[in-house]
Simulated assay, not measured.
Amino acid sequence: MNTLSLPPGQQVLVTEFADDPVSAIEQHLRLVEQAPPDLAQLKPDEILVRIRSAAVAWVDLLMTSGQYQHMPEPPYTPGMEYSGDVLAVGSDVAPSQIAVGDRVFADFMQVGPRSYDGYQKASGYATYAVLPAHAAFRIPDGFSYDEACNLLGNYETAYHCLITRGQVQAGETVLITGASGSTGMAAVQVAKLLGATVIATGRSDEKLALVRDMGADHVVNTRAEEGNGVRRFRDEIKALTGGRGVDVVYDTVGGDTSLECLRAMAFGGRLLIVGWTSTPDVARGKGQRGAPNANQLPTNIIQMKSLTIMGSPAVIAVKQNPSLRPPRVAQILQWVTEGRIRPHISHRFPLPAFREAMLARWRGDVLGGCVLHP
């Protein structure tokens, strides 16, 4: 019999959807006591994890207002990706799979608010999580808790977009927008592993200097001299490519940035739609459906430059075709083992400072990853 005695913990709750993420963070999120899990109720295939680190992702923010395509039902706890220590295991969990004392990270597609089935409540902004053993991975040697909880979501996105969808080849030139973000930094590393020349864009010289250190061949600041707009940068991209333009665009930003990217592409280029961080209000708030502010692209440019525009949803694609996932997860873990990829974490907060952490992500203060420590 397991005699482990656990103290109460804490967890963040989203009590209802708001008009936008900032309103949700300020008005509809609260820190409450989390009752310790009842070990007598632990199922044979489950494990209990004491959470040490939880990623603060852009998607976590959009979920709070119901402006993301996947909506957990409030009240719910945010935190798609997290890592921690195994405190207890069910009777059917073999030590070779997961053992008490192991450092693990959770599979965000199987548990937490982004998952589809029975473990949506097993989220990261909390002290404890109970999840099935098959939804946890051992943290690789040399990886921290912070790095582990910023691994799968970011690098699976980069893999799916650049490899599965974009079919990037060695010698091609890839333009990565929002390159100082978590998926942007992952894309820089993956594109370089594929043998591509990487041009990275962003809105801060300081951030772009770090992106260059992460492997980008060229960096371009796209911020307009006045205001928060996007300056004309197509000529700079053309100059860096000998007048030809880029073969592939990995676009996390959307809006005016996408329009400028189209004009910087080579004939026959591929635009990978990864996200739209510059226009987070494309959908209605409070979980209402519809997209009254949806981004639009000029069909005349797409036609005359023979461009291919690809939606690249890494999670939804797996829902449609589960066979896509095993090879990409295996490749990512192999790259980790070989020391070829590593997330960058710029911001760390204790769990009670969850509002500060989420607003730092919203404002764009973060370079790469941001984490909460429960």
Rank of each mutant, 00 (worst) to 15 (best):
R231E: 02
G229C: 11
G229Y: 14
T252V: 15
R231D: 01
G255D: 13
G243Q: 03
V253W: 03
L259E: 00
E225W: 00
V249F: 06
R234K: 10
G243F: 01
A239V: 04
L259R: 08
R223H: 12
R244K: 02
H218D: 14
G243E: 00
G227D: 15
E226S: 13
G243N: 07
V246M: 11
V246F: 09
R232L: 03
V230Q: 04
A224L: 08
E236I: 03
R234W: 02
N221Q: 05
D251L: 11
D235K: 15
D247K: 06
L259H: 09
D251N: 07
G242T: 06
R232P: 12
L259W: 02
R231C: 08
T257E: 12
D251F: 05
N228E: 04
F233A: 08
Y250M: 14
I237Q: 14
G255N: 13
V253F: 05
I237L: 02
D256E: 14
N221W: 06
D256G: 14
Y250A: 15
D251A: 03
T241P: 09
S258K: 09
S258A: 12
A224C: 05
G255C: 14
S258Q: 11
R231I: 04
D235T: 07
G242D: 06
H218C: 11
D235G: 10
V246D: 08
E236T: 15
D251S: 00
T241E: 03
N228C: 08
I237N: 04
D247I: 15
V230C: 02
C261H: 02
T252Y: 00
D247E: 12
G254C: 10
Y250G: 09
G243W: 03
N221V: 01
N228W: 12
V248N: 09
F233K: 04
I237K: 07
K238G: 03
N221Y: 07
K238A: 11
G255W: 12
L240D: 01
G245V: 06
R223I: 15
K238P: 07
N228G: 15
L240H: 04
E236M: 06
D235H: 14
G229L: 02
E225Q: 14
V220T: 10
I237V: 09
S258G: 10
D251W: 00
G227I: 13
K238H: 09
R231T: 13
K238L: 15
D251Y: 08
K238R: 13
E260K: 04
C261A: 13
G227F: 13
V253S: 09
E226Y: 08
A224I: 13
T252H: 09
L240A: 01
V248Q: 09
D251E: 00
V248Y: 14
F233V: 12
T222H: 14
R244S: 04
A239S: 04
E225S: 10
C261L: 08
D235P: 05
V249H: 05
N221A: 00
F233H: 04
G255L: 13
R234Q: 13
V246N: 09
R244H: 06
E226G: 10
D256K: 07
G243V: 12
N221P: 13
T222W: 02
A224K: 02
G242Q: 00
E225T: 12
L240W: 09
E225D: 12
R244V: 12
Y250W: 08
S258T: 11
A224F: 02
G254W: 06
T252C: 04
